[in-house]
Design a binder for these strands. Structure first.
Lengths: 353, 353
DNA sequence: TTGTAAGCGTTATCAG
DNA sequence: CTGATAACGCTTACAA
């Protein structure tokens, strides 16, 4: 009996069929660990050995197995992100920022959509953690009790993005949605508007929207202005929904002097509807938006809006995670990227701006 | 000397700190493999054992390690996608389709952006393959020799998306960009236009754009119409670029009777520019687009455009990969999802449509 | 600068 | 239905 037929010896067939380190090692005439070193810290391998290894890798077309590396080293080069929906272009920019920084640093992005559901997000947190990502980016600071617990015990860098009002679970990056809306509405009041409507995305499971709406109410109240309940509208994220809200407000509340769309997808929809109805802005009604999407600068006249650092929120989130992984002890757990109100032609301008 | 202090014995500290199967096994009073079975094929575990395991998992907050699972089982629940840019909303829809199907089936999406660079794409193919994904989705059918070779030898389901004209490396899903543009331009000729301009994204490293442009030229030639070189313009993917092209064509080529924007980001930009310049469509010039973005139905009048199955390309790509993984032998390696020309108010309508 | 042996947390294989 | 053992492909720890 040969050595391989010993009773009780289990033979597991080599499953992958792919070249692996030991194959490279054999061809290069060195040991496996040397290949590993070459791959991870080429500087620690002799010039001559390096050449042999390069040739061997090329010859057999070796592609490292990051799964095995992840298990062995107990860390992966994957960062996970959970966002409400990729279809909303503000999150597309956010992801783009994440992706750019991560790819520049050799990390990949594992992505999933919660569809604005907190329960779905909780499930996703769990399945994402199962992948043992190096870090995790979530949207907003509102989650289920279980979701928060999972994040707290995850033991990896966690970044909550797009809202910084609450105490972060670990780190947070974004801006104050409350302040942004408070300032925008106060500004509208400052240029003379009194009866101001609000169109925003639904507040359910969305603390960014909730805070925006609160900012609106607070600014109105601070100026002693009444808000008629009919002035505040929900509209889901779609141009058409902004158009619908615009139409309804125009018909049902002709007393409105200005409408604040707390998202530019909605404001652009509103502008389109104005075009169809022959409503002129700012002559007939003031219009302003939120996000500073590219199109807002191209309407006629261009739209007053709030510029928010969509792309930089992604970049910063990634940067904060990488810094933590590099062992840096961040002084700042919360990064406020701010916002900027852009006064353009769709409203009068305040005196000093 | 105790057994753990034997000379030469290497002690590797348990690195993860996370609960693992063996912990669950101990608490539940069964073996590790039984936990594994419970996780993967609960039906094969006795009811009573199942209850004990559920309780144990809950008690210690066990989260499976998919990295270890991936190494051991030699397959992951990750599908990789390489797209030009997430920022272009047609790809956001594409990703959304991928993500929806994958998540419904317990798979995750690993994503990366090539930035319309074939060299970058080649690198990404390699790093993505290192993650041992269950499948890979790429954009278009144009790649470097090395990129194609990597895909061919990857030994996993590969889907090329958004163009189906060439022989696929493995599978392809999308539509014929050539046919779509040929038909659109032929239609424009059919309703009476003779001098038709084309604004499209750059053709470099982009076979979809290349094929669209070829469709335009072919349709013009088929109708014996000359194309003045100045009528064909490059514009990068941005509303502003569409506006710029529109302005330039209006000034430099007032003879044009219609302009075909081979992307709706560009056509919407063009429409905005028309608004600023007081150019009316279809009275002064015919305008049509490509993609059927939501906004094209909201301009005044709405835009004639080509509807393409953005979201379904993603869904189908994911479905094709999953089917292959399930062992189904697809009869069809190429899925033609087609397109539909939508005649709307920005051009005259053909008689039977 | 290079090598040896053990181990990462799970599942495949075989045995009961 | 359940379990013992080896193995997945790589890196850590230690040694030379």
């Amino acid at each position: 009996m040969g050595p391989d037929t010993k009773k009780g010896v289990i033979q597991r067939k080599r499953s992958s069929g792919r070249a692996q380190i030991r194959d490279v090692a054999r061809v290069a005439g060195v040991s496996a660990i040397t290949i590993s070193r070459y791959l991870n810290e080429p500087g620690k391998v002799a010039e001559e050995t390096r050449k042999k290894i390069t040739a061997a890798i090329d010859e057999i077309g070796y592609i490292p197995n990051l799964v095995a590396k992840g298990l062995s080293s107990n860390r992966t080069n994957v960062v996970a992100a959970i966002i409400p929906t990729i279809t909303n272009s503000i999150f597309a920019d956010h992801i783009s920022g994440l992706s750019d920084v991560l790819e520049d640093n050799g990390y990949r992005l594992l992505i999933s959509e919660s569809g604005y559901s907190l329960e779905r997000e909780t499930e996703l947190i769990e399945t994402m953690l199962a992948h043992r990502p190096a870090g995790l980016v979530v949207t907003g600071q509102l989650r289920t009790e279980r979701g928060a617990r999972l994040l707290r015990s995850a033991n990896i860098p966690i970044v909550e993005s797009w809202e910084i009002g609450a105490e972060p679970i670990d780190m947070a990056v974004g801006f104050s949605n409350f302040d942004a809306c408070f300032q925008m509405v106060s500004g509208l009041i400052g240029v003379g508007y009194r009866k101001i409507g609000l169109v925003s995305a639904p507040v359910a499971a969305n603390d960014r929207t909730t805070r925006r709406r609160q900012g609106y109410y607070a600014a109105m109240e601070a100026a002693d202005l009444e808000v008629h309940p009919g002035w505040v509208r929900d509209a889901k994220f779609a141009f058409r929904e902004g158009a619908r809200a615009m139409g309804e407000l125009a018909e049902q509340h002709p007393e409105l002097e200005a409408i604040f769309f707390a998202s530019d997808v909605l404001s652009i929809g509103g502008v389109m509807e104005c075009g169809r109805r022959g409503i002129r802005f700012p002559e007939d009604i003031g219009i302003c938006g939120f996000d500073d999407l590219e199109l807002t600068s191209m309407t006629n006249p261009p739209l007053t809006t709030v510029r928010v650092p969509r792309y930089d929120i992604g970049r910063s989130a990634a940067t904060m995670i990488l810094a933590r992984l590099a062992g840096e002890n961040q002084a700042e757990r919360v990064t406020d990227l701010g916002f900027k109100i852009l006064w353009r032609g769709s409203t009068p301008r305040p005196r000093c701006s």
